[in-house]
Design a protein around this nucleic acid. Structure first.
Lengths: 96, 96
DNA sequence: TAAAGTACTTTGAAATTCAAAGTTATAAAA
DNA sequence: TTTTATAACTTTGAATTTCAAAGTACTTTA
């Protein structure tokens, strides 16, 4: 077993790490919120968030606010756990 | 400017992050040392370390110990700096 | 002399990532 | 009413990255 084994491959990418970090500290964030916070393109955000959704680390819910469509992103308990583990692994790696 | 802009793309990958972390706290480590610490294949270690070398984040020096070839990896001042910045960016991202 | 160690390089396939363009549906503006 | 804008994607196709496995070259140990 190597030092990096507990580092989650899904969080190797900046954008996915960013999404998770934001959702750890905000109860929910919508599409445009994430887009602005991260400064990424629509397609990029959509595909990276879908990757996290497939892993069941985040939940994506569509609704209407007034008559405008709105997509809300939240972190799942599974995602919270995985993220915490990842941060622990990072800390262990860095602060040996 | 987004929240993830100061995250170094070169450190997005586990293996490269691992190499840097190890070299931050060890004056030098050789090929087999890194290989065992990280539990990666030869080819993988060679190519990821070359990527870091190209960026001048690490230095790779070949010599002989007795009659055995030995490759020694050290971090450069540039690499140390980049890594510190990356860690700061990570902390800022995570602990907002 | 045969096997194992050191440190790669090469190869080729698979997976990932990206921006850009296209899509659907509603709404506001001119 | 035609155009423009907003929201949130999906699709596409090219480029880049990543990977394990095999090959290389030289040395040493059994």
């Amino acid at each position: 077993m190597g030092l990096i084994d507990n580092i989650n491959k899904l969080f190797d990418h900046r954008i996915r790490l960013g999404i998770m970090s934001i959702l750890m500290v905000n109860e929910y964030v919508d599409f445009n919120g994430l887009k602005e916070l991260l400064d990424v393109t629509d397609g990029n955000l959509a595909s990276h968030s879908k990757t996290l959704e497939k892993a069941e680390y985040i939940k994506i819910e569509k609704s209407f606010i007034g008559k405008k469509p709105n997509t809300r992103y939240t972190i799942t308990p599974l995602g919270k756990n995985a993220f915490k583990k990842h941060i622990d692994a990072l800390e262990n790696l860095i602060k040996r």
